[in-house]
C-alpha cells in the first residue's frame, strides 16, 4: 500500500469564517501573533500498489470531481514516502517530554 495525501483548501478569494473564528480565539487562549488562519481538509488515501502515473491520475480525477469542489476549493495531491510514514508513526507515540 502507498499513501497519497490530498489537501483541499478554500480558494484565497473565498471567505473562510471558520478560519477567522479560530484566529480570533487564539489571543484569548494566549497564542499571540497569528494574523490569519485558513482552515482546510486533508485526505489520506491508502492506495493499492503499484502507484504509477495511471493510478495517480485517477487520484487527481477523484480529487477534482469529488474530494474538492473546484468552484470554491483548490487541491494538491502528493505521495507520502514510506520512510516519512514510519517517522510519523514514531512521533505519534508521544512527543519527547
Amino acid at each position: 500500500m502507498a499513501r497519497v495525501v490530498v489537501d483541499v483548501m478554500l480558494k484565497p478569494e473565498i471567505l473562510d469564517p471558520q478560519g477567522q473564528a479560530v484566529q480570533r480565539a487564539l489571543p484569548r487562549l494566549g497564542f499571540e501573533g497569528v494574523t490569519e488562519v485558513r482552515q482546510g481538509k486533508r485526505f489520506e488515501l491508502e492506495v493499492a500498489e503499484p502507484l504509477d502515473e495511471v493510478a495517480l491520475a485517477r487520484v487527481r480525477e477523484m480529487a477534482e470531481t469529488f474530494l474538492a469542489n473546484t468552484v470554491i476549493e483548490d487541491f494538491t495531491v502528493r505521495v507520502e514516502e514510506p520512510v516519512q510514514r514510519e517517522t510519523a508513526g514514531g512521533q505519534g507515540a508521544g512527543a519527547p517530554a
Binding site: L10, I14, L15, P17, Q18, A21, N69, V71, I72
Partner: peptide, 10 residues
C-alpha cells in the same frame, strides 16, 4: 453555477 458555503456569522 457557484456554491453554498458556511454562513458568514457561523
Amino acid at each position: 453555477p457557484g456554491a453554498l458555503t458556511r454562513n458568514d456569522h457561523l
